Simulated scan of single mutants.
Amino acid sequence: MAATGSGLTSFVVVAADSGPLLDDCIASVLGAADAFELVLVDNASTDGSIGRVLAAHGHDARLRLLRNPSNLGFGPACNRGAGFARGDVLVFLNPDCIAPTDLAARLRATLASAPDLGVLGVQVTDPAGVPARGNRRRDPTLRRALVTLSGLARFEPRWPALQGVEMPPATDEDVETVEAVSGACLVLPRAAFERVGGFDEGYFLHAEDLDLCRRVRDAGLRVAIDPRIRVAHAQGASSRSRPLFVARHKHRGLWRYFRKFDPAARNPLLRAIVFIGIWAHFALQAPLLVLRGLRRAAR
């Protein structure tokens, strides 16, 4: 692991055929003037995106490239990026996000004001500035997942017992303690990241952020969101070319999270029902996702 530097913020961006949006993401981070480095972890991209980034920014000493020989998955790549990084604050940023120029300074200010923070999230928005779903989340227990999938979560304001996984966007301007935050921009002091052992590499893509938030809380640290800090995210843009691949790993990740953390998984019957339900849901989605992918490829 690289020696860490106090006051240095390390942005870790994982790319896997992330397309032209990666150029904008890298340019937005390098547009800041704070003390930071940008670790770009490439999961064996073949779309030319890494070459374009190097052609535009290869001269910038703040940009450091780490190449993986194959697509290791998001969590494993983040762990390798964190080990390669030198900062005492780690910012895991999706490759289709645009960072404001003062992002590092504002993140560090919030972390400094609350030493018990283990994970800090931000108000992720779409490109038009509309807050995204999932900025504030609850643990995806079986009960909450069923409420969400059934559509009953929309009645939560009237009946609080009908809590789903996602919470409405933050409406105040204070740092708020939550169970989980969006993985599009996930911020941790290095000490907290190392305390929990980083991302669980049993996940390939999706749910590893929920898992990390859960383990940070279990370690006695706080997970919170600062809605005053905004990051624009072209949601799903980095995975539109491989919808079936992404959906498969999303379902796989949810199954792993359920087995690890949900007390309902201790019941063999419920465990079997959830397994069947998760993969039946994937099977129902698959034809539509394949058709959608073929339509995009034909454009």
Rank of each mutant, 00 (worst) to 15 (best):
L142S: 03
L289G: 12
D17Q: 02
V39P: 01
S49V: 08
G83I: 10
I278F: 12
I50H: 06
R52P: 10
H249C: 11
R222V: 15
L254I: 10
A191K: 12
P69Y: 06
L188W: 02
A170P: 03
T141A: 00
C213I: 08
D262G: 07
I229Q: 04
Q235F: 07
A280D: 12
A114D: 14
H59S: 15
A180C: 10
D96L: 04
L111D: 11
L186K: 03
Y203E: 09
D96N: 10
T101A: 14
A272Q: 15
C78P: 13
G129I: 08
Y203V: 11
I229H: 00
G183N: 08
I98S: 11
V89W: 03
L289I: 12
D102H: 06
A15M: 02
W279M: 12
F199N: 07
P227S: 05
T101C: 11
D23K: 02
A2Q: 06
V231M: 03
L38W: 02
S18G: 01
R256K: 13
A61I: 06
A35E: 13
R144V: 08
G253L: 03
A180L: 06
P115E: 03
R137D: 05
A44N: 10
S10I: 03
G73C: 10
A283S: 14
A85H: 02
V175K: 01
V53H: 01
F261G: 09
V53S: 05
R86S: 15
G129D: 05
F204L: 14
R190Q: 08
P140L: 00
A184G: 11
N71C: 11
V223W: 00
S45A: 04
P287Y: 03
R214K: 12
V13Q: 00
L107C: 14
A132S: 13
L107V: 15
E208L: 07
A184S: 10
R80I: 11
V165N: 03
F84K: 13
D116R: 09
R266A: 15
Q235I: 08
L294V: 14
A109W: 02
V119L: 04
D174C: 11
D126A: 10
G202M: 04
T141P: 02
A234C: 08
N71V: 07
R86P: 10
V53E: 00
A153H: 09
A105N: 08
D42L: 06
H59Y: 04
P189C: 04
G164H: 04
G236C: 12
F84A: 15
D17N: 13
V39E: 00
R158N: 00
D96T: 13
A286T: 13
S28R: 01
D218G: 07
D174N: 12
F261Y: 15
N43V: 06
A128C: 07
T101P: 11
V216N: 01
L288K: 14
G7I: 04
R271H: 15
A170R: 01
R215F: 03
V181I: 06
R266C: 14
R136S: 09
L38M: 04
F258Y: 15
P100C: 13
G121P: 07
D34Y: 01
L54Q: 15
A264V: 09
L269Q: 11
P76N: 11
T171D: 08
T177Q: 06
W255R: 15
N135D: 02
A61K: 09
P76L: 11
L40C: 08
G73S: 10
K260N: 13
G5M: 01
A3M: 08
P160V: 05
F84N: 13
D139L: 05
